[in-house]
Amino acid sequence: MIELYIDGASAGNPGLSGAGIFVKNGHNSLQYSIPLDEMTNHEAEYEAFIIGLEKCLPYKDQIISCKTDSQAVYAAVEKRFIKNRKYAHYLPKMTQLLDQFDLFFIKWIPGKENAVADKLAREAIYKQKKKS
């Protein structure tokens, strides 16, 4: 089973943003700290989820267990629907990626259980601020 932890963060709302992706495959893990454009926190969460799915495509024939502290992302995946029209444009890409996985599960977790992905998302913002 592959465990995928995702988090998006924004320094301001909107502001410089980052995605944190943590993929655990048994004793092996991959960590990604990805700078994003200026966007809201919700947009960063959706972007992080899409990037996380893309990073897991090589494992699409395995069980993927995704963990997020974003209730919006969790609800969007569970219902295959995004209530807020402002973010609805993310749904087609999410659905297209989700449909490629044999078994995909998502679970909402409290932020304190998502510390690695959160740290990676914040590092991505810091990298951008440091360049400026």
Rank of each mutant, 00 (worst) to 15 (best):
N114F: 05
R85I: 11
K107I: 04
L97A: 11
R80S: 12
P92S: 12
R80P: 03
A115N: 07
K79G: 08
I82F: 02
H89R: 00
P110R: 14
W108P: 03
D102H: 08
V77E: 02
G111P: 06
K93H: 09
Q96S: 10
L91S: 09
P92N: 14
D99N: 10
L91H: 01
V77D: 02
V77T: 12
M94Q: 00
E78W: 01
F105P: 04
W108Y: 15
P110C: 15
F81R: 13
F104E: 04
E78I: 15
K79W: 03
L103I: 13
L103V: 12
P92V: 13
G111E: 06
K83Y: 06
D102F: 10
K86L: 05
K93F: 07
L91V: 12
Q100D: 09
P92L: 01
H89L: 00
H89E: 05
G111S: 15
A88K: 11
P110N: 10
F101C: 09
H89V: 01
N114D: 00
E78M: 12
W108V: 07
Y87S: 08
K83L: 03
E78A: 10
A88Y: 09
M94I: 02
W108S: 10
F101S: 01
V116D: 04
T95A: 02
V116L: 06
P110K: 15
V116M: 06
K107M: 07
E113R: 05
Q100Y: 02
D99P: 11
M94F: 02
Y90F: 15
Q100N: 04
D99I: 03
K79Q: 15
